[in-house]
């Protein structure tokens, strides 16, 4: 798989995302927020975590107007895989690629700790190698991870099985329905607050995050084999 990782001013998980994608066998290219094109042969674009534009105004609100984002929107519309992690999830919501929004954690604190996630949908390209119901231990690190949306949107997400990850036990940030990650209607854009790239090797405390990267590699491999 060929992976592009976008760096915005204030991104700080871009190097980790590149590393994890490489561990999963990916060839990685760095993309810059001012880029006005992305390589035609990319399989996956990652919007990494961080504090793009200092979180000014709202998290992700300014980054969505970066030149690269118009390309990411086109890439997603053409069926390309996109993952937004943490700040990347916030940017995807602001850009309208995913519904809802992320607001202040209910306890008003920045929370940095491992959480348990239940994989609710294992038929996405991002979770295809995960056994149904598997619990993953992956860290979160955010101040604004409380997922909110209108009751209609929440219902639609639940009915269409688009809640991919849900916090198990403790809901750390007060997200509606304990939502930790969702996909778009076409299933090719994933947004999640937890950081799979920070759980990429056992030396980091958990390698559960790798199951997401390896799912994507498997999904792309399957596509190639069946083509």
């Amino acid at each position: 798989m060929k992976v592009g990782v976008v760096t915005f001013p204030g991104s700080n998980c871009d190097a980790d995302a590149r590393y994890a994608a490489q561990l999963a066998g990916g060839t990685v290219v760095s993309l810059w927020h001012k880029d006005t094109s992305i390589p035609a042969d990319l399989d996956l674009v990652i919007l990494p975590g961080g504090f793009s534009y200092g979180d000014y105004l709202r998290t992700g609100a300014i980054a969505r107007f970066s030149p690269i984002m118009a390309e990411v929107v086109n890439f997603a519309a053409a069926g390309g895989l996109v993952i937004g992690i943490c700040n990347g999830f916030q940017i995807l919501c602001e850009a309208g690629l995913l519904p809802g929004a992320l607001t202040r954690n209910h306890n008003l604190q920045f929370i940095c700790k491992d959480v348990l996630l239940r994989t609710e949908n294992t038929s996405t390209p991002f979770t295809s190698s995960i056994q149904p119901g598997t619990t993953l231990r992956i860290p979160i690190a955010h101040g604004e991870g409380c997922y909110v949306a209108s009751p209609e949107v929440i219902q639609e997400l639940e009915d269409s099985n688009r809640v991919v990850f849900r916090y198990v036990g403790d809901n750390p940030n007060g997200s509606m329905n304990a939502i930790a990650g969702i996909v778009n209607a076409s299933g090719n854009v994933l947004g999640m607050m937890p950081h799979p790239e920070r759980a990429a090797e056992s030396i980091l405390g958990s390698s559960d995050g790798m199951s997401i990267f390896s799912s994507i590699a498997l999904h792309l491999g399957d596509t190639l084999c069946s083509a």
Partner: peptide, 8 residues
């Protein structure tokens, strides 16, 4: 377009 997010 920018100053507020109508979702929230």
């Amino acid at each position: 377009q920018l100053l507020a997010n109508p979702v929230m």
